[in-house]
Design a protein around this nucleic acid. Structure first.
Lengths: 202, 202
DNA sequence: ACTCGATTTGACCATTCGGTTAAACCGTCC
DNA sequence: GGACGGTTTAACCGAATGGTCAAATCGAGT
């Protein structure tokens, strides 16, 4: 087994377990067992368990950053088209990395790793606020950038963090392609109403 | 120290610590120290640490249920007024019990206690869906009850779960009376747009 | 003063945790 | 074939964890 493959397998196992059980409830022995790798290798390759989470978040935020940057850079005819593309892209990313949404939501809600998550999320939020503030020059006062961004972010992310509740509520898989497509359609619809309002109710 | 006061102090300490550190990272010794109570008494009064969380959630959901039932029962002239009152009431509850929002968000995102939280949340969601389905007879297809409820819920709750990020983003306290009032105004505004749409764009 | 049940205490226990270490292993360059 | 750096292994460690228990304490009723 290659050294880089070892690192990969450790990260993969840690990702799955952190997502299922949470960081604190996952032991290094769990990770070793699932990845089929000696426990000491986790520390050899990554340092402490905290460092392993750090490496995992690093990888995720790098991917997310590249993905979102791609959506932002794509040419769009209207503001509405751009927003819809960005939100669809973000939803697709969360759907493809369901553990990521859960890990981040857990660690940002409380706990010892808030700072780590904030550190990486903040720049993206700031970009979002800056970008929106431009588009919101003539928006009503109670649709300010911070509130609006939190609202839109919440709309997108809650489907994934509360997926298990939705599953039991509906009896259907909220992450099936059909359900995800319906959710994205719903988000586009709701955000469309916000854009209408911001642009002055065409 | 009275026995009921002991129970109270243990619950209070556990609440604070679970909210700050998370359930797994909180030790029974932490709880004993903060509450000024012997560690063995936690088990004497509540059983296991899991049972303690259960008791805490039980208390919270009882309070929440009563509070929300009150808002629902209050007389309102319009659908809009009722929805606004309900959402304001919920936001006030979360503001008054900030640890509750964090604990629930953590445990519903992943972990061993998902079922416990789902168990208690589901009835309220079902009520919400049933109530909304009635009001949504002539709504557009992509504004179905489940999606709409998730959206509105996400809008309200994200302000509290992502409070620390907002704090660093703005440099201001997102839970100050002024900020909370502004947030509630914003939520009323956004949800108002949804109601407009559902009622057929008056 | 005595009793009895509920409560409180500190000492204790088995287990598990994250992390370390010395020795073994392995490919590769000379 | 031997030396060398990077990698892997099993055994090990001290600290902490959730939980238990017998003994002590308390308070109300007699």
């Amino acid at each position: 087994m290659d050294a880089t493959e070892t690192r990969q397998r450790i990260l993969e196992a840690a990702d799955g377990l952190f997502g299922e059980l949470g960081f604190d409830a996952t032991t290094t022995r769990d990770i070793a067992e699932r990845s089929g790798v000696n426990k000491a290798l986790i520390h050899y390759h990554f340092g402490t368990k905290d460092d392993l989470l750090e490496a995992l978040l690093e990888r995720y935020y790098e991917q997310l950053g590249a993905t979102m940057q791609g959506a932002f850079a794509r040419p769009h005819k209207t503001l509405r088209a751009k927003v819809e593309d960005v939100l669809d892209t973000y939803a697709d990313f969360l759907a493809a990395h369901s553990t990521f949404a859960r890990i981040v939501q857990r660690e940002v809600a409380s706990g010892r790793h808030i700072e780590r998550v904030v550190e990486r999320t903040l720049p993206m939020f700031q970009l979002g606020v800056a970008w929106m503030s431009e588009a919101l020059t003539k928006a009503p006062r109670d649709l300010d950038a911070v509130n609006l961004l939190t609202t839109v972010y919440g709309i997108v992310v809650t489907w994934f963090t509360w997926g298990e509740v939705v599953r039991r509520l509906t009896g259907k898989d909220p992450f099936s392609p059909a359900a995800l497509e319906a959710r994205k359609r719903h988000v586009r619809r709701v955000v469309g109403l916000l854009i209408d309002e911001v642009e002055g109710r065409k």
